[in-house]
Simulated assay, not measured.
Amino acid sequence: MNLDKLMEVQGGLDSHVVLEKGLEEQDLFNQKVLALQVEIAELANETRCFKFWSSKEPSEPEIQLEEYVDGIHFFLSLAIDLKMEPSSLMVWDDFTEANLTETLLSVLSEISSLYVLKDVNLPASIFLEDLQEILREAFQVYVGIASKFLGFSWEEVEEAYYKKNNINHQRQLNGY
């Protein structure tokens, strides 16, 4: 996994969006947190992991992968906002969640705490370190979802990320 390159590419897209939309003076952190939550929920919807009432099959793997990498975009964008080094973003540990539903809920819970903590009046250094740790933990679990539950290799995730990043750039150029 080349997080250095992924964060560089994401930073380029983020800068492009901010300039194109005239958002230089806006703090977009909370919007990115909500966007990440929505993307995780869209992934859950495509996997149908929580839909105990339905017999319908999950979406095709390609659709799940696209939703998954949409989440990667916002994780990386938040990491850039929190001034995280790519090497500090990844900590490899096994996670214990037994199924995809629990795992997604765990990630959503961590992401929600980013919003909650941001509103607490803490000294800047403590605040930033806490936010970084929360994002690191959530990202670590999210990365594990790809192989443990969805059956994707990191190479497939990276390839899909770059493909979607190009689509996102094209969308911006076309007034999305």
Rank of each mutant, 00 (worst) to 15 (best):
D81R: 09
L128I: 04
L105D: 08
E102K: 12
E129Y: 04
A79C: 05
N166H: 10
Q10P: 07
K83S: 05
G151Q: 07
A41G: 08
K118L: 01
K21E: 11
L150A: 07
V120A: 01
Q140T: 09
K83Y: 00
L135G: 04
G71W: 11
A79T: 02
S87Y: 06
N2D: 15
L65Q: 10
E24I: 03
G151M: 08
H169F: 12
R171C: 07
L3H: 08
V38R: 13
W154Y: 10
F75L: 05
L173R: 06
R171I: 01
K21W: 00
K51W: 07
S15W: 07
D27I: 05
G11V: 01
F95N: 03
E137C: 04
F127K: 15
L108F: 05
L6A: 09
L128Y: 00
W92S: 15
L65M: 09
N121H: 05
E24H: 07
N165E: 12
D4F: 04
V157Q: 07
F29N: 01
D93A: 10
S55L: 15
Q10T: 01
S113V: 05
P86W: 04
I63S: 13
L6M: 12
D14P: 11
L117P: 03
L78A: 07
T103W: 10
D81F: 00
E46Y: 00
T103A: 15
A35M: 07
R171H: 03
Y142M: 02
Y115E: 15
L19N: 08
M7Y: 06
Q140Y: 04
D81E: 12
K118G: 05
I40R: 04
V120H: 00
V9S: 15
V107D: 10
Q172P: 14
E158V: 14
D27K: 06
V143S: 11
E133P: 00
F50W: 11
I111G: 13
Q64G: 06
L3W: 13
A146L: 11
L114Q: 00
F29R: 02
S88K: 08
F95M: 02
L34S: 10
P123I: 00
L19K: 15
Y142R: 06
V143R: 14
S59C: 09
Y142P: 03
L65A: 09
H16D: 09
H16G: 00
D81S: 14
E24W: 10
S106Y: 15
E158N: 13
